[in-house]
């Protein structure tokens, strides 16, 4: 462990800065505890969706509704943003603050592109007459995918807040765990999307 008064350089910066202090270790453990709860939250939403997806009443069914090329592009954006946030953490471990901020900024841009496509998708569906209250299928669809979209928005705001807050101070053992947890959260949101992409969109195409 490094004491608080040591000046950090590229040479003495620990390889796992997120767990180099007791506070960092506690945050790391606590954050996984939170992710465990998030897993259950999304499991509930996915379970509800699967149970209700064939109750489309007089509205559109899943294989009449979805816009596939759009969704594939959105998925690629989100997968790539997962890689760029991993690259940011790589730069963090090498104590290269500016590079890290840059990769996080690219992550934010990719996240925004994903959100823009999702908003466009929802508007398009509403135009087709597929609204939140159209059928049990539409309600569970918008709730599940909307919850995920809200997580993406929160992740974007989280990254931006950290980037602005620490823009002048540079990297330290106090803010390294914060950046690291934001990137863990981002990977988690990506993992959830992999499931939504498969269970909602691809299985929806099968019928």
């Amino acid at each position: 462990m490094i004491s608080n008064t040591t000046k950090l350089t590229r040479e003495n910066f620990p390889i796992n800065p997120e767990r180099a202090t007791l506070e960092g270790q506690n945050k790391y453990l606590g954050f996984w505890f939170f992710l465990c709860g998030e897993t259950v939250l999304f499991a509930c939403l996915i379970g509800t969706y699967l149970a209700l997806k064939n109750s489309y009443s007089t509205g559109l069914s899943s294989n009449e509704l979805f816009e596939y090329p759009l969704i594939l592009i959105a998925t690629i954006f989100l997968l790539t943003s997962s890689l760029t946030s991993a690259l940011a953490v790589y730069e963090m471990k090498r104590f290269k603050f500016v590079n890290m901020q840059l990769w996080f900024f690219i992550t934010v841009l990719l996240g925004c592109s994903f959100l823009a496509l999702e908003v466009y998708e929802f508007i398009h569906y509403v135009d087709k007459g597929f609204k939140f209250t159209t059928s049990p299928f539409s309600s569970s669809f918008y709730t599940l995918v909307g919850f995920h979209g809200a997580h993406v928005s929160f992740g974007i705001l989280w990254f931006l807040t950290l980037m602005l807050r620490n823009a002048k101070s540079g990297l330290s053992l106090v803010n390294a765990p914060k950046y690291y947890l934001a990137s863990l959260y981002w990977h988690f949101v990506d993992v959830v999307w992999v499931f939504i992409f498969t269970v909602v969109y691809l299985l929806g195409m099968v019928g």
């Binding site: 992710l35 465990c36 709860g37 897993t39 259950v40 499991a43 509930c44 379970g47 699967l50 149970a51």
Partner: peptide, 13 residues
């Protein structure tokens, strides 16, 4: 989390 999640999905289904 995964265990509870999978059980939840099965229960819903």
């Amino acid at each position: 989390g995964l265990l509870i999640g999978v059980l939840t999905v099965i229960a819903c289904l």
